[in-house]
């Protein structure tokens, strides 16, 4: 796989046509990737919490689901009215700690909130590996549309998303 640009917690990374994007060690966080078939550009946010209740929503929009999606749209130069041409990939949102006395269900609420925002913008989710009780890492190769998701103690999941994303096939 091509060199991977990693999004750390709350960060946003992007690329066009070449390279790969990914996140390492997603627990309750959700790697939220939007792909624009028209420009072959992809942008990825490492979302930590559903709603912004801190002062850093402006400086770190990738941290919160409600600010991350608009920030990804701006990065992909796509107005909200045309957002439906984008495709989404969601990875993460697990609950690692079992039998919590005060379950905050942050992973679950991250995933729910992102689904609600994406469906309001009519952005289709073409691939999702979310919820459950395990942590995950993933890489997405923008040129080939290949996604690879790793979890501890499980066989890595690999899928070719080039057709679902409308990735141009270039002659070798």
């Amino acid at each position: 796989m091509a060199e991977v640009k990693l999004a750390g917690m709350g960060e946003i990374v992007w690329t066009r046509s070449t390279g790969a994007l990914g996140c390492i060690g997603l627990g309750s966080c959700v790697g939220t990737l939007l792909f624009d078939p028209r420009t072959q550009a992809a942008a990825l946010a490492h979302v930590m919490l559903p709603e912004a209740h801190d002062h850093d929503a402006l400086t770190m929009p990738g941290k919160y689901a409600v600010t991350a999606v608009p920030a990804l749209l701006r990065l992909l130069d796509t107005p909200q009215t045309l957002a439906s041409r984008l495709k989404a990939i969601l990875i993460g949102g697990g609950e690692l700690f079992q039998n919590r006395s005060q379950a905050l269900r942050i992973g679950e609420r991250n995933v729910e909130t992102l689904h609600r925002i994406l469906s309001e913008l009519r952005i289709g989710v073409v691939f999702e590996h979310t919820r459950g009780s395990s942590g995950r890492s993933f890489e997405f190769d923008v040129a080939t549309g290949l996604i690879r998701v790793r979890a501890v103690g499980a066989t890595p999941v690999e899928q070719d998303l080039s057709t679902a994303l409308g990735i141009f096939r270039r002659a070798a």
């Binding site: 390492i24 060690g25 966080c29 919490l49 005060q102 992973g107 890492s137 501890v152």
Partner: peptide, 23 residues
């Protein structure tokens, strides 16, 4: 309160703890 248990990638475990603290 009684502990909650996890066994997973170091980063995933740490980030889950940190995110709850932020929340």
């Amino acid at each position: 309160e009684p502990p909650a248990f996890a066994a997973d990638m170091a980063m995933a475990v740490l980030s889950s703890i940190l995110v709850e603290a932020l929340y």
